[in-house]
Design a protein around this nucleic acid. Structure first.
Length: 340
DNA sequence: AAGTACCGCAACCGCCGGAAA
DNA sequence: TTTTCCGGCGGTTGCGGTACT
């Protein structure tokens, strides 16, 4: 106020590109302890050389404990197709119906798989081959490889302005026309569900321990509350500076040096979180025998996870998520329950 | 076996809307 | 009421991996 609007993030001196395990751990550690009330300030407070947006994105799309990793199920894909027909490129809305899935993920899946599938369905005679053929036809529609997304995108954007009426954006974009919107209206009033939060209640009610929310859009609404309950409810503990130095000292190239610092979050009733962090640490190669001094960097009451150190030199993070740490609980409440 | 093309995923960018001061 | 800030959303891009020639 009064000092002009600061740029979203000063781009100087900030890290960009892929996140390192250390950065991930820092972010996780910080959020586990303090939540993410202020994304803008978070990186600074957490000692991350990232902009707030980047942190938020990383958390929402990748580090969140309740993410369901792995391939989309047929049901999920079907749901996406239908919802896309109904909502257009409202990825966050769609994501809100698919617990454990992020808008980004859904967007990617749509652009890489589902769009082709849908367009092929619309063009039965188009059953030439796969892959390239599909792409070709797809591109032909879109005029350019990457604009395939933007073509419908633009449309959707335009329609945003004209209202949220589901399905109207489908007019210009190629796929949606086929989608039987009535399908939803018959089974359930998804439009209503999607318009606002209420929908999410049942979804978020999943027994997911540290789960702040189940989708990025939930982040906007439900998530805040959820976080308050499960993460932000943490006692105001200032992370010891050592923790950060420990995290830094973890030295990704030295598995044995792994630090489990991560906040072996000691928050009350956070076994789930602990379990999750443990898993993450394991996969990051941070879980395991560590320096004595590192072993107890945490404030009293915190639980650390000394244990076998897994050798995860390759890409620990991706390895971790491929194995899908939190898939089970969420799957039980997967989309179909709501949508069909 | 090597090279090339394609695919998929993660991350970045810019804009918009809501909230707070 | 206006201005500023922040979070969120959707679109786009770049990189790494995989498949094909």
């Amino acid at each position: 106020m009064g000092r002009g609007r600061a740029p979203c993030c000063a781009k100087v001196g900030l890290n960009r590109g892929s996140w390192t395990p250390q950065e991930d751990m820092r972010l996780i550690a910080y959020i586990q302890k303090h939540g993410h009330a202020n994304w803008r300030a978070l990186p600074k407070q957490a000692g991350l050389l990232r902009c707030g947006k980047s942190c938020r994105l990383r958390w929402i799309n990748y580090l969140r404990p309740d993410l369901k990793r792995g391939n989309f199920t047929a049901d999920e894909e079907d749901t996406i197709i239908k919802l896309h027909g109904l909502l257009g490129n409202k990825w966050s809305k769609i994501a809100s119906c698919l617990p454990g899935r992020t808008d980004n993920e859904i967007k990617n899946v749509w652009n890489t798989h589902l769009k082709k599938r849908v367009s092929q369905r619309e063009k039965p005679g188009d059953t030439k081959k796969k892959g390239k053929a599909a792409d070709a036809s797809d591109d032909a529609d879109a005029h350019s490889p990457s604009s395939s997304a933007s073509s419908s995108t633009t449309t959707a954007a335009n329609n945003n302005n004209s209202g949220d009426t589901a399905g109207e954006q489908c007019g210009t974009s190629k796929e949606p026309e086929n989608v039987d919107v009535s399908f939803f209206e018959q089974d359930i009033d998804i439009s209503d569900m999607l318009v606002d939060a209420p929908t999410e209640a049942p979804l978020v009610a999943a027994p997911m321990p540290p789960s702040p929310c189940s989708s990025s859009s939930l982040t906007t609404t439900t998530c805040v509350g959820a976080v308050s309950d499960e993460l932000l409810d943490l006692p105001e503990i200032d992370i010891e500076p050592d923790i950060w130095s420990i995290i830094d000292g973890y030295g990704g190239d030295e598995p044995g040096d792994g630090d489990a610092t991560v906040p072996c979050t000691a928050s009350p009733g956070e076994e789930g979180a602990e379990w999750w962090v443990e898993n993450l640490e394991k996969e990051l190669g941070l879980w395991g025998p560590m320096d004595e001094s590192l072993a107890h960097p945490d404030p009293p009451g915190q639980v650390c996870y000394p244990g076998p150190l897994t050798e995860t030199e390759g890409d620990p993070v991706s390895t971790y998520f491929q194995s899908g740490p939190t898939a089970s609980p969420l799957q039980e409440i997967a989309s179909p329950a709501v949508l069909s």
